[in-house]
Design a protein around this nucleic acid. Sequence first.
DNA 1: ATATTTTTGGAACAATCATTCCAAAAATAT
DNA 2: ATATTTTTGGAATGATTGTTCCAAAAATAT
Lengths: 192, 192
Amino acid sequence: MARTKTFEQSEVLMKAMDLFWRKGYHATSVQDLVSYLGINRASLYHTFSGKEDLFLKALENYREINKADMLEALYSQPNAIAGIRNLFHYSLKERKDRKGCFTVNLTAALMADDKHLQEILRDNQRDFEKIIFDYLKSGEVMGEFPKGKDLRAIANLLYTLYNGIQVISKIEAAPSRQMEAVEVVLQLLEDK
Amino acid sequence: MARTKTFEQSEVLMKAMDLFWRKGYHATSVQDLVSYLGINRASLYHTFSGKEDLFLKALENYREINKADMLEALYSQPNAIAGIRNLFHYSLKERKDRKGCFTVNLTAALMADDKHLQEILRDNQRDFEKIIFDYLKSGEVMGEFPKGKDLRAIANLLYTLYNGIQVISKIEAAPSRQMEAVEVVLQLLEDK
DNA sequence: ATATTTTTGGAACAATCATTCCAAAAATAT
DNA sequence: ATATTTTTGGAATGATTGTTCCAAAAATAT
């Protein structure tokens, strides 16, 4: 039988995700990856087939983690409004190193002719909005806020807000400023 | 006396802005610039001192144009609410080629250690929010919407919304979806 | 211990990166 | 027309890009 790998593939993928997250695709060289991941050049090409493939795997990895974190942030709260608030609060705390959000960064860097990434990012948007919509819907059923609101439109607004906040978190120091914006929108749910 | 340039510096700068806007800094090579601008390599280095300098000048150029466009979009309208609506409508129409917004793209691509760009982008944010705030303030004085609202917070929210919308415009087909989000926020101004 | 299989280190690859340099061309002032 | 000054074309720079290749090392199965 053959020799076993000396590194844990999932750990390396996590590091690759971190580096691509911080620097983006084009500003990250294979040399950067080799140094940061701590594995050999040949191992990188053997395990993942190249820079682009590694990037796509890092992106998938991010999406899975982010989705789980999102559900956790929402459903750990006693009601819908607190859940939404916590979702944003959580995602802003996370940004200790000002990386923003992987997928938001990627969307902003998207070039118009990149149909593949475009499709992945659209899929990501659908996921996000569906999670929010379903969550709001269950909150509405539970009577946590007045009925009759356009939850589809609010989910869309929250996704837009999330993108904006993640972008601004890269230059804005205080998360409290951004939470202000969240609170303003949350009033839309509460009022009636 | 000496020979005169065969190209208009401002036109070349406009093209450079367009290319950096579409592709971002790292994905744009000097060769790309030489081809797209239609000027010689040496001319590029003689006129602008290098890639980074040209980028910064393109960024300044964008900020000036964008600011003028913004003021025009706002103050061409009969009242504050129509002005804000038009601002977003205008910026979404513009995106025929899905470039998003230069400064938003740049903010999302910002690396945490780039203090210079960070300062420029913060300055840009201050500009934006001040323009919006002053505009809303004058609308309030004119009695175009109920007094007593936190216009500072609303200006901040609108900036966040602008960033989010510009990001999403790169993957979302219909501007109408994004205008929906704008309308939801505009209700905040209209409602008592 | 030997055979087998895979990882690993590092050299080597051609292509591209941003930048510099120089001689030739061009355009105005005298 | 000649002198002067700047642009221009294109070659050349050395560094870095992503990727491949190969021999040596390592680890398990027999």
